[in-house]
Design a protein around this nucleic acid. Sequence first.
DNA 1: CTGAAAGCGCTAACAG
DNA 2: CTGTTAGCGCTTTCAG
Lengths: 357, 357
Amino acid sequence: MAGKPTLVSLARELGVSRQTISNALNAPHRVNVRTLERVLPAIEESGYRPHVAGRQLRTRRSRNLAMRLFASADGINGAILDRFLHALTEAAQRDGYRLTLFTAPDDEGEVAAIDELLSTADIDGFVLTSTHHDDARTAWLLEHDVPFVAFGRPWSSEDPFEAPHPWVDVDGGSGTSDATVHLLERGHRRIGFLGWPAGSGVGDDRRGGWQRALDAAGVDPATDELSLGVEDSVAEGARGARDLFARGATALVCASDSLAIGAVAAWRQGTPDASAEVPVIGFDDTPVAAALGLSSVRQPIEQVAEQTVTLLLKRFTGGAGGTAAPEHVLLPASLVLRTPDPHLLGLPPPGPGHPRP
Amino acid sequence: MAGKPTLVSLARELGVSRQTISNALNAPHRVNVRTLERVLPAIEESGYRPHVAGRQLRTRRSRNLAMRLFASADGINGAILDRFLHALTEAAQRDGYRLTLFTAPDDEGEVAAIDELLSTADIDGFVLTSTHHDDARTAWLLEHDVPFVAFGRPWSSEDPFEAPHPWVDVDGGSGTSDATVHLLERGHRRIGFLGWPAGSGVGDDRRGGWQRALDAAGVDPATDELSLGVEDSVAEGARGARDLFARGATALVCASDSLAIGAVAAWRQGTPDASAEVPVIGFDDTPVAAALGLSSVRQPIEQVAEQTVTLLLKRFTGGAGGTAAPEHVLLPASLVLRTPDPHLLGLPPPGPGHPRP
DNA sequence: CTGAAAGCGCTAACAG
DNA sequence: CTGTTAGCGCTTTCAG
């Protein structure tokens, strides 16, 4: 019990070769069952744990995944990366992997960081987030045959399901479609979409769902008139929503909770009836939405994280050169309906009044 | 240029011993200046990067820090850990360290995880977050002589500045004190405090600041009457605030933005005048507060992260057995004043009205 | 100030 | 099925 047991010390103690111990742990099928039965409990009891550096030096694998941590942007929508990170850490840990974080100022910096991590730290695989059109990162990673899984489709691909690398994503379009259908069922016909400027894969996807739902219902989306792309902020959301309401929209589907919060404010401004249903649906189901009672489309982030790790591990075992076909997972979003407390985001009925200073 | 250069291959190429290269990188002062001038650029150019596993195996140090990632709680206040994580990763990276994440169900699990990381992965130091009364983690870490820095004071210590381990924290009490002084200057006299149940170090600290400011101004805090502890949620905040307003409070200092958002709603309920100043101040300056125009106390999280890394590195170099006195850093919080857009969190002037479906 | 030798803990390859 | 041998890349120790 003196100090950390190591392979040799343990082997000596048990009267077997160090190799047998290594095998018992890494390739049990190669060891005599009787030996195994004797050795495994002893290993357990001794508290022996293989040292990663030795293993890594030999195998060139670190049992480490890595991911770039983006600055949490506006933080409202950034909250989703928080959930992802936690779920990812947990999923990796379950499979005996650890998660290493790094930062980079831009995609180029990310590639440089990955390059360094690969050659110095034997990181086994990378998780890419915030994929976008013409993403230079995926090209580099593919070219260098680096195992990775993207959270986000390759937006520039003709057919993402034919993409040469594995990815996991959430079907945002189905989410906005569900949201639109819900508003249709509530009797709305002039339903607007408040999103971001065209060109972002994620944003266009979400707008597409809205449009499809209206088309399917035989309602003219009036795409040019009732859809607007603005910067992702509460203030811009309010401004844009006022615009859309002025054009006759009676309800709005939004590409983010930030926009939706602004939209609710704009709507309240024109509809001071506190008991009226709020015809605005956000996206991401951030904590803010929950706090304010805003309906929102929820991404199954925990599942995304699990699938990401699963695909990554599959890549490790499934042939060195990526011979196995890459897998692509598109998960459905779900609509979370809420009834806002009228006092939280809007106009309350005149009350007794509070004392003033 | 074939494959990754290694110490030997590089040394052969440059006609020096591998040792000279190692020295040039790790102990430049031990190498002849002329040799250095010749060798360093060549190293640079070759793209050689020392491999961590080899170094780690030899030195028993991994240049890795680790931190437990908590589930992001309610996510509103959890947003602050997001900022911390990013800043920490960046600070560590600047000093050549990487950050490894892990999860644990509770403090006991965290200790077990740390124990394993220490013996298998040579993690050089740990960051503890969410410290609380009678924190068993610090005791264990001290006992095992593990380098760590806590984000958060040891709340059970008589005098935290005499604590046997380094910590970095934010002076929340000074923040709530500033907030209270601000409200006093606006003419309020019956200023309430809406916080959490007594017993949490952080919460009690924030309440203390409020009380001190009122004492200093010669105003009776009416502690029992105008201070309330509730669960940290928007709904509970609204309920608690209604209670405090009913007891005659004209303004509120809150222990979190969640509570403050609820409080604003409650206040609007009794004061439908949109032009009235909102006499509620939150804590943490979360993205939600910014989005809604809520005044809030801001923690200098980026500085906390930097100091945390600094103290940790100091611990590595400053004598093995912790001979140097541990350092304690208390950073001031700052008050962020905002004028809320009345349409965002409250009652707008009756407008033209929007079309209905 | 520079070079040679040794070995950290582990597993892949091969011989018994 | 088991044991021996070798070596991953690095730094520390010790001799020149």
